[in-house]
Design a protein around this nucleic acid. Structure first.
Lengths: 239, 239
DNA sequence: CACGACGAAACTGTCGACACTATTCTTTCT
DNA sequence: AGAAAGAATAGTGTCGACAGTTTCGTCGTG
């Protein structure tokens, strides 16, 4: 695997961005919710400057959106957004798999096999998703294309946020979904290990398309409107 | 064509980012060159705050890079970078063409035909490239996937920057290169107009791959090292 | 002459302040 | 009571300042 040489600034702003990203993905801040700079500054115990920079970093990751007035809100998630995210994932990961197949090593195979074994043992849907995403990330990095990985990261976080709003994953995972996904992963590994770029691309695209078929029917909860989530000042959780 | 609903903050920072992007793409600031915030603040007649935000926006577009110390430099361009950019373009634009073919309209066909006619009349390589990129952008927006377009924009600016360092484009365009490119565009239009997604994706990928084959042999100038460009305080050009 | 240490200059990260604008609440009039 | 107008509250955009750190230039020494 080729290492990704991208290194973000290691300043306060980045730390806050990481923390805030976690909060958004985990649902602490809900879609449509306003993110006021003074509020966040107090929450993290810093001034507004680093918060502002963190906002920009999150906007680029597609987790928040700026209004024309300058206000920032957590990005809302609708049917169309899921479609877009998946289409973007397919575009990037198909190419990622294609390139990864070219440079694939025996060590990479071992890594994936180990990951698949962990996936089979994952107790919850959440845990499984984490392992799933980690595996996809590994393959992307095997592509050796730093830019492709960077672009993928943006989609990845949006995807993780979407997963939070898919109910079924929050509970114990359906055995058939798990075995289906694992089978998909085995199918992906095969052309990679055999160094068949075109097949790897095709199988990866199909795998992503398939796995989302299992999820989407479950996206029942309509994203709460901004008004609904803002009503009543939510107490600021302790840092 | 579906309109892209993304709207950036319309503040000073964004204006500076746009201007600075132009300066980098046009070669006013050269790869490896340090971009000090006070210097840019003076150049644009603003304080450091908007400049800082502009830097983050440019970093996301891949035009500048942060060092671990916090310094910002114009991103360097090497052989590998061109490869990465092209691979990313293929990934995104193949998917873009695939989706665009689904929603393609007669109006879109007219737009492209008009663009191709302009391309045939373009006097310089630079002008041709602009029309070329505009056409690719149009197709991306026809995909109807806002996220795909956003991701593509990042690669696009890096690609434009790379073009600046391809000498042949700066001069009068070789007739055979032009007719070759135009033919490629006609080939792309066909499956789009016929609404053949898979063919459109394949042809678009091939077209990008082909057109870069014509360029790359010309990338002879090694990117100047940071040291070379920093020697002697370059006078700040008037705004 | 090369090289390392020291001091000066420059740059970044963060903060608090202020003007201006958007939003919310209150009051008044129909 | 409902709507419109105005006041108060909250938030954004930008600035200048300061501490800490890096970088650059210079001087002294082997």
């Amino acid at each position: 695997m080729t290492k990704n040489s991208f290194q973000p600034r290691r300043n306060l702003a980045h730390e806050i961005a990481v923390q805030l990203r976690r909060d958004i993905i985990s649902g602490t801040f809900k879609p449509g919710e306003a993110l006021a700079e003074p509020m966040l500054a107090e929450r993290f115990g810093v001034s507004r400057a680093p918060v502002r920079e963190a906002m920009i970093e999150l906007e680029r990751a597609g987790l928040v959106q700026f209004e024309t007035t300058g206000r920032t809100r957590v990005r809302t998630l609708e049917e169309k957004d899921i479609t877009e995210i998946v289409e973007a994932r397919i575009a990037l990961e198909a190419m990622g798999a294609r390139l990864a197949a070219i440079r694939w090593t025996a060590e990479d195979t071992r890594w994936i096999e180990k990951s698949i074994m962990s996936q089979e043992k994952a107790a919850t849907g959440v845990k499984f998703s984490q392992l799933d995403i980690a595996m996809h990330e590994y393959i992307m990095q095997c592509s050796g294309n730093e830019r492709l990985v960077t672009l993928w990261q943006f989609v990845r976080w949006q995807f993780e946020m979407a997963l939070t709003y898919i109910h079924s994953l929050q509970q114990k995972m359906a055995p058939d979904l798990r075995s289906f996904s694992v089978m998909g992963h085995r199918n992906v590994l095969k052309p990679l290990a055999n160094r068949q770029p075109e097949t790897a691309a095709k199988v990866m695209a199909q795998h992503i398309k398939d796995s989302i078929e299992w999820y989407t029917p479950e996206i029942s909860e309509p994203p709460p409107t901004a008004k609904a989530t803002r009503s009543g000042k939510r107490p600021i959780p302790a840092k």
